[in-house]
Simulated scan of single mutants.
Amino acid sequence: MGTSPRLGVWTPISGNWAVRRHPDEYLDGSYADNRRTVVEAERLGLDTTLIAQHTVNPGDPDGDVIDTWTTSAAIAEATSRIEIIAAVKPFLYNPGVLAKMATQIGHISRGRFAINLVSGWFLPEITRLGLPLIDHDRRYDYSREWLSIVEQAWAGGPVTATGDYLRADDLRLRPLPYAGSPPLVYFGGESEPARALAAAAADVFLINGRPLEGPDGVRAVIADLRSRPRTGRAPLRFGLTSFLIARPTESEAKEEFDRLWRLTQEQRKPIEGADPARVMGRNAVGVASVGTNGGTLSGLVGSYAQIADRISAFADAGVDTFLFQFQPHFAEMERFATEVAPLLRSRHGAPVG
Rank of each mutant, 00 (worst) to 15 (best):
G8N: 13
P12Y: 12
A18T: 14
V19N: 03
V19K: 01
R21L: 03
H22L: 10
D24K: 11
G29R: 04
A32G: 11
D33R: 06
N34G: 05
R36K: 07
T37G: 11
T37C: 15
A41Y: 05
L46D: 04
I51S: 12
A52L: 11
H54A: 05
T55M: 09
V65G: 13
D67Y: 05
D67Q: 13
A76S: 05
S80T: 10
E83R: 10
F91Y: 06
P95F: 02
K100N: 04
M101G: 02
G106H: 05
G106F: 03
G106R: 10
S109W: 02
F113E: 13
G120M: 03
F122K: 03
I126T: 10
T127N: 10
G130L: 07
P132W: 00
R139M: 06
R139T: 04
R144F: 00
I149V: 15
A153M: 07
P158E: 08
P158R: 14
T162H: 12
D164K: 15
A168R: 10
P175A: 03
F187K: 05
G189A: 01
P193G: 02
A198L: 03
A199F: 01
F205W: 12
L206M: 13
I207Y: 05
N208G: 12
G209S: 12
G209W: 11
R210C: 03
P215T: 04
R219G: 15
A220N: 11
S227I: 15
T231E: 15
T231P: 05
G232C: 10
L236C: 09
F238E: 09
S242A: 14
F243L: 06
L244H: 07
I245S: 09
T249Q: 04
A253W: 00
L260Y: 10
D275C: 06
R278A: 07
R278G: 01
M280C: 05
A284L: 04
V285L: 03
G286Q: 00
V287W: 01
G291W: 01
N293A: 15
L297D: 03
S298R: 02
V301K: 01
S303C: 02
D309I: 02
D309F: 01
D309Q: 01
A315S: 08
A315D: 07
A315Q: 08
Q325G: 15
M333K: 15
A337T: 12
P351T: 08
G353S: 08
G353H: 11
G353R: 12
